[in-house]
Design a binder for these strands. Structure first.
Lengths: 222, 222
DNA sequence: CGAACGGCTATTGTCGACAATAGCCCATTT
DNA sequence: AAATGGGCTATTGTCGACAATAGCCGTTCG
């Protein structure tokens, strides 16, 4: 058994595979907002039973990506400006807590992960790939949440994150100036490294509220 | 058709009825923490199909009241001290946002609801019924969340609230001095009525963190 | 005597079929 | 012509049966 690495077996429950596929399709925009989904068609295409697909769809509904109206059908949610406001205010509140906790209680290795995530963001900003920057941005925020050691916070954050991703893709990502992005995130990192809980919380909240306002403002002209 | 009130028709989907029953049983302690639940037994007793019960159980899992381990079974969650800490820190963060929003954007009728809820709390405190006080306490907090006009916040709060209820019941509710309870909540109400967003947010957060610490402290001796 | 192996059982995971419902189209009536 | 009612269709809601799996227990082998 000294073969360096035997290929990882892909053995996941059918419903989570279906969930992953559907979520990816929705986030990447292959299934557009407002689109109608029917259980039979999906189960047909995926070669799964309706019950399995139904489970996945319910999960997606919980994540806020689809919505079910009884006896009628599933539709991919269409995020309004109000929704974006909700998402970013909620995100700000959640990350405020996360940043504070990460600064105070963050395990050393998790703090190191935050450093790495910031470095990845720096690299992405140099390359100027819009998509890569967006991903690294998400990654940095997520590393802070993970460092909070707060399982419910992580779970909660996951849901918000999915919805924001959908919106970012659908509105085709306003990417700010790379150096500006770094300037906005660096103080948060510094505050966490300095274990200044209150400052980290405050900076994180401000950052998210600012981003949310930019996002709603940029789209208000539609 | 001038009959004063025709009896309300109870026609809900079977799964939500099952969900309600199960949740109530868990919260009231009829099904104790750590108990094992099997789909067949429940569907048997309720006269429903396994699929329907399964849907309800998945919903309960989403609410954090039960947990599923694959191919093995459902169990009612048992909240640890860490869980209580998580719940109260999260609640503090969520209600912080809610109180701030209620102060700033709260519709007049929702603000009136908050007043009513506080009055109900006063009445409950006079009667000194531990259970009634706890319910009125929840009601006051919930009225603030409802006044935020933030649908995701409300949804998120519902989940946390259920879990806290379970714990309060299971640990048999430490009820503080009634007048103390009122003294703790009144400033929050005043700040909202004065539309002082920052103060309302701060007071609300402090209040919840304090309660959480009391709760974990009182149980640390177990 | 210990440990690995194989089957047994309880329970969830998955499936296809039938029932109930919402929304639509069209005929019918006023 | 407008409103009303009936039925038609697409889709979800519900159901019972079969498949897959984890955990247990006895058995067997070293």
């Amino acid at each position: 058994m000294d073969r360096t690495k035997l290929p990882k077996i892909e053995k996941m429950p059918a419903d989570v595979r279906a969930l992953g596929v559907l979520r990816a399709r929705i986030i990447e925009g292959a299934i557009p907002a407002g689109a109608r989904l029917t259980e039979v068609q999906i189960s047909d295409e995926m070669g799964l039973s309706r019950a399995t697909v139904r489970t996945a769809l319910h999960q997606l509904a919980q994540e806020g990506l689809v919505s079910l109206v009884p006896y009628t059908g599933w539709t991919v949610v269409k995020l309004s400006q109000q929704d974006i406001w909700e998402l970013y205010t909620l995100r700000a509140a959640v990350e405020r807590l996360a940043a504070g906790l990460a600064a105070t209680n963050g395990a050393a290795d998790r703090i190191a992960d935050i450093r790495k995530a910031f470095h990845a963001l720096e690299v992405a900003c140099e390359r100027k790939g819009a998509n890569e920057i967006a991903e690294a941005d998400f990654g940095f925020h997520k590393s802070i949440v993970d460092a909070s050691g707060h399982s419910r916070l992580c779970a909660q954050y996951g849901l918000i994150e999915h919805q924001i991703r959908v919106y970012i893709r659908s509105s085709d990502a306003l990417i700010a100036d790379p150096s500006e992005i770094l300037d906005q995130h660096r103080p948060i990192l510094d505050a966490i490294l300095a274990k200044d809980s209150a400052l980290a919380a405050e900076l994180s909240e401000e950052h998210n509220l600012r981003e949310g306002q930019k996002l709603t403002a940029s789209v208000s002209g539609l």
